[in-house]
Amino acid sequence: MQASSQADHQLKIYSLSEQGVTIEFGQAISEDLLQLITNFHQLVNQNPFPGFYTAVPAYTTLSVFFDPVKVIQSRELPGEDCFEKVSGYILRLKATLKNTLASQGNTITIPVCYGGKFGPDIDEVASIHNLAVDEVIRLHSSAEYKVYMIGFVPGFAYMGGLNDLLATPRKATPRSAVPAGAVGIAGKQTGVYPLKTPGGWQIIGQTPVKMFDATRPQPSLLKAGDRVVFKSIDLPEFNLLAAK
């Protein structure tokens, strides 16, 4: 990232609730903004203010949540009310953000068994784009994706980087149940369902990997800023990994 691009960003700070403040870093999705938000998220975690609970990154925002009683009682945070105290802190902390690549995120490979019973919509996706099924698999598994944010359900990653050739509208009628691990396409997005939920994405495969596991120290496999690569596996390998 260019050193100047961070300094160019103007912050907008707004109150989300009595217990939350949102910092808006820009208006459009970009990898630069993702890097900036990821860096700032890390900086806030390393420098928590009194009463700070947690921060939630999204496409263009980072929201911080806190205990208003602790914030208002804090003498080290100047301001008339919690919003002033927290936004003042955020602005001062932002001024210390180094123009360096602090966090590169991890690259995570997700094995996917494409098509067949795991990818009921892959034929539809292929025919919409006039592609062979193998070509759909090749295009989907040869790109590197960026995780912009986690939301919707625990461990669900909003990823960018889908090849335009695969962009496909959602299904006209959502399924009442999509299995955990289902890999789907919706518009220009691709993603993996961490839990069995209703869903309208075009399902092209399934991973045996647990995208979310409440017993892990980091329950969500992915976090904002990570890179993802999908690797095509066959059914025996799927079964082998699923049995682990």
Binding site: V56, I150, V153, P154, S220, A224
Partner: peptide, 10 residues
């Protein structure tokens, strides 16, 4: 559950 919102945990 206050500390896992960033992982999509409500």
């Amino acid at each position: 559950r206050r500390y896992f919102l960033s992982q999509g945990v409500p």
